[in-house]
Structures are given as structure tokens and as C-alpha cells.
Design a protein around this nucleic acid. Sequence first.
DNA 1: TATGAATGAGCGTTCATTCAT
DNA 2: AATGAATGAACGCTCATTCAT
Lengths: 204, 204, 204, 204
Amino acid sequence: MPQNTPGNPEGDGTPVPRRLLAAATRLFADQGYDRTSVQEIVEAAGVTKGALYHYFGSKEDLLHEVYARLLRLQQERLDMYAGSQEPVEERLRAAAADVVVTTIENLDDASIFFRSIHQLSPEKNKQVRAERRRYHERFRALVEEGQEAGVFTRDIPADLVVDYHFGSIHHLSTWYRPDGPLTPQQVATHLADLLLRALTHPGT
Amino acid sequence: MPQNTPGNPEGDGTPVPRRLLAAATRLFADQGYDRTSVQEIVEAAGVTKGALYHYFGSKEDLLHEVYARLLRLQQERLDMYAGSQEPVEERLRAAAADVVVTTIENLDDASIFFRSIHQLSPEKNKQVRAERRRYHERFRALVEEGQEAGVFTRDIPADLVVDYHFGSIHHLSTWYRPDGPLTPQQVATHLADLLLRALTHPGT
Amino acid sequence: MPQNTPGNPEGDGTPVPRRLLAAATRLFADQGYDRTSVQEIVEAAGVTKGALYHYFGSKEDLLHEVYARLLRLQQERLDMYAGSQEPVEERLRAAAADVVVTTIENLDDASIFFRSIHQLSPEKNKQVRAERRRYHERFRALVEEGQEAGVFTRDIPADLVVDYHFGSIHHLSTWYRPDGPLTPQQVATHLADLLLRALTHPGT
Amino acid sequence: MPQNTPGNPEGDGTPVPRRLLAAATRLFADQGYDRTSVQEIVEAAGVTKGALYHYFGSKEDLLHEVYARLLRLQQERLDMYAGSQEPVEERLRAAAADVVVTTIENLDDASIFFRSIHQLSPEKNKQVRAERRRYHERFRALVEEGQEAGVFTRDIPADLVVDYHFGSIHHLSTWYRPDGPLTPQQVATHLADLLLRALTHPGT
DNA sequence: TATGAATGAGCGTTCATTCAT
DNA sequence: AATGAATGAACGCTCATTCAT
């Protein structure tokens, strides 16, 4: 009696941990973290509970892994854009647009990120916030660099501008629809433009 | 005659339903809806479960009531500002600033609103979204009125601008701290300014 | 502000205890005793819980009263038929047919009787069984009287014949439909006939 | 190695699902379905609630399983008797007697069946009634077969005769006592005889 | 005679996690 | 590497009954 081999309906070639992560991502995004049971996850992944606990320490770890994956990706790309040789204005614009695109391209991960962070245990919550803060700091540093260089206005606090931009990014998972009128690139261009405009025109 | 009199730690003069609503609001904001048990709520309010279910049909109703309270307040104020005699530019600025102030003044309610809406049953969720949409529509109508009057630019879709503004308002409960450097009014002025600037300057 | 007077939609002339009993009867018959809440009863009767507990000691008392009402009626009629001057054969036939008719005419009460007796507390259950037994004894005495007189066969125990008959009466609430092909009288005639035939023909 | 071994008061060799079913059957028969709590069942079975819900979807499923077990048994035996080569009179007599015997031999199951069917949810109730109806139909077909063959009288509707018989069978759990004067076989012979007599003698 | 707010014990059910195999 | 039976604590909710008014 042959075991699961690549090609079988369940247990297709994909390794078990990745199957679990994919199932969890979809379910968390659809129903929320608290309302998704471990049983549902293992059924969707075609494995048993024992297998899940073999690879992940807890349900919370699964959620954390979704965060970590997206955060690693975005941090890496931010570092790339921020560290390039372009003028600060262009570096900020590119970074601001890129985070919009990657958020839309990973909208499930992103909506889990923004909705479910409060459902982690206090410790894990702290850890994730710290990782997120590191990302924000890098972004804000870029704004401040421009302000120090005299390219961006100081009429408005860098903090507030960054929060303005990230507020709209969090909000994407509420309103953005892949079948809507705007492509990810168009949205990214608009939002980056709004950010830059806020920093390059005189205040009231 | 040891009846409850005002001043008693439990059972102070406040009517039971209000005590329950207050306790629920605090706990939902602190821990999230799903992670707050009915037992915790009634203990915090100093009553029993039976009393809660005497006044509220379900835990979900309690959450809905928090929404409804804030939504009624903001809808009322939006209607007031939007319907005044000022030029459209000033009406939008006033409305945009006001929603920031009332959000900050009711930050618990607001953070519950933005975080917990996904934890409602599909029917209640639909209902709340419909009520919220009505609010958004009114706001967007103001933007479109300005665009038709030629006061606001059409370089950017009204939808996207409104979502940009509300994204930043949702985000307030993430970063705003009452003991931070900015007063609610200052934040409101900045954010309203950013919105108006996005609508009154030429695009890139 | 006029109080409830005869003719008002709720609180029509019928006295409160009777209204409660009527509401309870209908609900118990429809849904069963355990699945009917006191709240439903008082709402159906158009009064409040306090009123119910003013007239009845408990929910169980309400159920007992339904029993008692039917039992009083049937006991009274049995005594009447059994004590008449007719030959024993005719007295049994009349009594056997009459209990069928009164059961069908009070089918709600009867189905409550047969279904819900086991849902009473042990004490009340004992009491009702004792009252019911008195009824059975009288019926059985009639059969035995006929057996002693040589009119009925002794091939079959009186007990068993009586239980046979009452088994079919209990069962009425399961299959009898007012809009079915048989009138109560027709069913009564058939069933009394079956009983008499069992007692007047030689066994196998 | 203090594992559960056969003979231990709890956790004897019997598999958990069977232990649960046995405990539930006894308790439902003693106290009724609604008045038996899940807690009582699992305590009587020596397991925890979690184990019960591992094997059964709900308390209602447990009740349904009791029904199904008895119904399967009786349907099977009825089919056997009804399909034999004997004359229709003998086939009906054998089937009528057999259902009495199996009812007495499974008196707990049977009394649960007759008492608790109304306490099922509407859907389950419908399902069980349908299964029960199939059984009744087969039985009635036998009566009609005899009527068409001219062996049984047509003075009385087949329906009514069948209901008369099953009424007495339902009633068995009310009066039959294992320590009483009659063996199951004797009761069965009497009741089958009554049924046949009703069908083979001329009406009044 | 009647109210209705409040109790408190209990209900059926869920679920993340463990562990012998 | 993986199973799946079993745990045990907690959950949201119901309800007959009480009692100050």
C-alpha cells in the first residue's frame, strides 16, 4: 500500500509545514485567527493534529510565522530601496510605492497581520510590535533624512506622516479588490504621490 | 437597610445596562472581543450573567451597541458639518478634523470598532458595514461636490482619497497616545490639512 | 388610563389562572414540557412571571393541573358509566368508547399526559401515577365483574386486556388526526368493539 | 504500569463509544433525555466530555443511536418473518409476537424510543419518524395482503388495527415488569392472538 | 394583585494541547 | 514523522425562581 507520494491528491509534493502554513493563512484571512480551529487547519492541509504539533509549537506560532514571512520580505525590500544611490525623494517614493504593491500582492498575509496582531499573547504581541517598529523606524529615518536635507517640509512631524501612509496601507485590505478599477501599480503610484506631496508642499 | 447606595464599589448609582456597557467597552478595547469572556464582563460590572442577558440578547449585541453609539455620534456630527452654509472646502475640512477629534475622544470605542468588526456574525457584520457605508458615502459626496465645483482636483479618485483619510483614522488607535506630544486638535488639523492638500494641489 | 377590561386584546375577560393554563396546555402539547420555558408561557398568556408564580407554585404545578383536569373528567364519566343499571357488557362497552371520545376531544391534554408524565419530579410522578391507577382499577374491576359473571372469557388476564385498550388510547395522540377519515365516534366504536371481542370470543 | 485493565470499575475493556452508549441508554431510560445531563453520562461511563464529543457529534446523536440500534434489529426481524413461506396468517402472527419479545428484551431502548422521540430537533425527529414509518408500512402491508386474500376481515381499517397493536407495544414499557407473572413469550402470544382475533372474527 | 430586575446553578459544546504508540 | 484518542478548562447562554416594590 503506497504511501503518499508526489502527485497524490493530498500530500502533493509540497512539504507538510508549508502546506500547513498555506492552509492557516487562507483560513485566518477568511475567518480570523480566533475563529479558526486547529482542526480546520489540519483538515485543510490534509494532515493530522499530531503533524501540526510536530512542526509548530502552537497555533500562535503559526500566526507568528505568517507575520514573519511578510515582514522579512518587506524589510528586505525597504532596505534595498532606502540604501540605493538615488536622491532621497526618489528613494522614499520608490519605497512607499513598493510597500503598497507587496501588501496588495500578499493581501491575505497583510490582512491577517493587521487584524490578528491583537489576538496574540502579550509576549508574542510585544515581539511582533518590536519587529514592526524596526521597519517603521527605517521608513521614518528616510523622511527625516529628507527633512534634514531641506528637501521635505518640517511643517508636519515625520511620525505623523509615516503613520498617515501606513494607515492607508493597513486600510488597503478593507477596500482593495483585485477585480476593481485600479491595478496595484496605480494604487501604489497614487499613494506614494500623496505621501510625497504631503512632504514637499508648504503647509497651511 | 444595607442597600446599594452611590459610592459603593459595586452597584453604585449607575444603572446596570450602562455599567455593563462600560465594562465591556474597556475589556474589549484592552483584550479584544473574542478574548473577553462574558464572565469577565459581568465581574467587572459587579452583576451576574443573568443580569447581562436580561438587558442584552448576546455578547455580540454588547459589541454592536458600542459600534452603534459611536456611529450615531459621528454620523450626526458629519451631517451637521456637511450641511452647513460654508464653502465646500471649509465644510470638508471641518468634517475631516471633527471625525479625528471624536475618534480620539472615544479611542476605546473606535479601536473596538476597527478591530472587532470582523468578529461579528455574518449578519451583524453586514448590518454594521451598511451603517458604516452610509457614513462613508456622505463623506465621499462632499469630495465629489468639491470636484464638480472645480474646487478639488480630479487627478485622484474621490474613493481613494476618502479611504486614505479613513485609513489614517483607523490607524489612530494604533499610535495615538493621550500623553504624547500632540493634542487631538493638533492631530486633527494636520490630518485635515493633508486631506485638503491632496485635493487642492495639482498631481505629479 | 383604563385598566384591562373585558374585550381588551390581552387580558380579555378570562381570568388570569385560566389564561395561563390554556397557554401552558397549548405550548406543552406543541413543544413538550421541558422545552417550554416559563417565559414563553407568560408571554402567550399576556401576563408576567410574577403573576404566574402568584397563582401557581411552580412550572410543575401547571403541568400537574393539566393532568388533574383531564383525569377528573374521565374518572367522573367512568364512574357514571360503570355504575349504571345496564348489563356489564354494555357498561364496559360504553365506558371504553367514552374514554376514546374524551381523549380525542382533549387531545392536547391527553398527549401532554402521556408524554410528559416522566418529566415530573419523583414525588409528583408518584402522585399522578396513583391517581391514574385508581382509574385503571375501576376499569379493570368492570372486566373482572364480567369474568366472574361468566360473560367475559378468562383465557386472557384482565390486566393485560385493560393495558391493551389503554395502550391504544395513549397511542391515539400519535396517529389520530381531526381531519382524517374517521370521526371520534367511529374510532370509539371500533376500539370498544375490539376490546369486547377480545373478551367475548374463545381464545386460540 | 497502572493502565486500565479489564475488571477496573472504570475503563474496563469495553471500548469507550460502547460504554458511553450503555451509560446513556440507562440514564435516558431512568430519567428521560432532557433530564439527563452530558455530565452525568460521561461520569457514568468513566470518561470526560471531550471523549464523548470525540465519538458523538451531540447529545442528540447519542439518543438517535439508541433508536437506530433497536430499529435496525426490529426491521431486520420483521423483514425475515414477513418474507417467509408460511401462510399470511402465520407470518403476521409470528411478526406480531416477535416485536413484542424484542421490545421486552430491549425495554430500556424501547421506552426511550417511545418517550423521547418528541425531544429531538425537528430534523432528527423527521428522520426517525421516516425510519419508523417504513417499519409500520411493512407491517400494514402484511395485514392488507391477508385482507386481499380474504383471510382477514375488512370490517376494520388495516391502519387502525396496526395502530391498535403498536399502541399496546408502546404501552409495554409502562406496565411490563420482568419480575411480573408473565414471561415475554406469554405476553407476546396473548398480544399476537388479540391482533389475529381482531382480524379473523366477524364484526359486531 | 402584579411587576420585572436579578440571581445562581447548570447546560451542551468547543478546543488547544498532550501523549502512548 | 505522524497518529488520533483523550483531556480538562473554559465558553456563551438558559431558566425556574425570588423578592423589593
